[in-house]
Design a binder for these strands. Structure first.
Lengths: 161, 161
DNA sequence: TTCAAGAGTTGTAAAACACAACTATAGGAA
DNA sequence: TTCCTATAGTTGTGTTTTACAACTCTTGAA
């Protein structure tokens, strides 16, 4: 706990990145039937109570074609359904099906179990603070993306990523 | 700041995952000539002052074939060199070349710049705590992997990813 | 000397991904 | 109205990342 500001920045970047590098493999091991991508897309649909493919692409910095194919796969599996917006037929609002919600819940539960074990000796206050820091950081990134959409400085958006 | 423990867990998992999902695209945008994988491999080589391909694979949960090809690419680019261990000719200790160190420094600097801007209004103490939490969490995961190697409970290793 | 284990490479295939070109819809302007 | 531009999404195509399996080479121990 005697970091300089610069050291803290270095550590945060390195550890966040290490975490990110492991994420895919970890998810694949714990729940082979639902990749990290699929899991996060379903989770976002649940969180948002449905949204457009475009919103998913923006939120996860993916090309719309990638999202389109991912969603097509999830639809084939029966986890996602499309509801065309009655006011604008260009828009398909994506929703979890009951099967999708169930699968998400199962995957979340097994992930959650391993995660909870990993932080079982953490103090509740530390967990809260950790959560708050992550939220604060990710909110900053999200706001950058919004302004980047308006302007053109997309290259400054989300670098430590 | 009035999360229950369960809520904090949920938030941490969700936000870490969202971060992980964006990481690749972000890295690609900020520094197109050095992918997230390449960057992390080079960074680990610098951090460890050289290591084996096997160590990289274990640390990032990648298959040894994946690491082998990544390293081959970095070697072609002149960023990494191999030094066969004189005592054991099976082992190739990987090291950054001066060019690799230079490239890493440049990529780190541009990532760092964007990152620093994102947390510029953060209090130093918060940054320290955030860094400490990440270290603490990742250390737990690393220890799990070690014990998993000894035993056979690889499925419990690194689930929240 | 034989043999099992570790380090690394290569063959192969699948998945994720981006870019570009396309269709279709919507909404405003001439 | 017609035309033009923008948005939402799909599809064609090619690259990259990745894992698994089979292989070579080296080591060390039986």
């Amino acid at each position: 706990m005697a970091y300089s500001r610069a050291e803290a920045l270095t550590v945060i970047q390195r550890e966040m990145t290490a975490f990110a590098r492991r994420a895919r493999a970890s998810a694949a091991r714990t729940h082979p039937e639902l990749s990290l991508v699929s899991f996060t897309l379903l989770a976002h649909l649940e969180d948002q109570q449905g949204c457009r493919a475009t919103d998913l692409a923006a939120h996860y910095l993916l090309d719309k074609s990638t999202v389109s194919r991912q969603i097509a796969g999830l639809e084939r599996l029966g986890y996602v359904e499309r509801r065309t917006d009655p006011d604008d037929h260009r828009i398909q609002v994506l929703h979890l099906t009951p099967e999708g919600a169930e699968m998400l819940a199962q995957a979340a539960a097994s992930r959650r179990k391993a995660f909870a074990a990993r932080v079982e000796d953490w103090d509740g206050e530390d967990l809260e603070r950790f959560a708050a820091y992550l939220l604060r950081y990710n909110d900053t990134v999200a706001r950058e993306d919004e302004t980047a959409d308006a302007g053109d400085s997309a290259d400054t958006a989300d670098a430590a990523g």
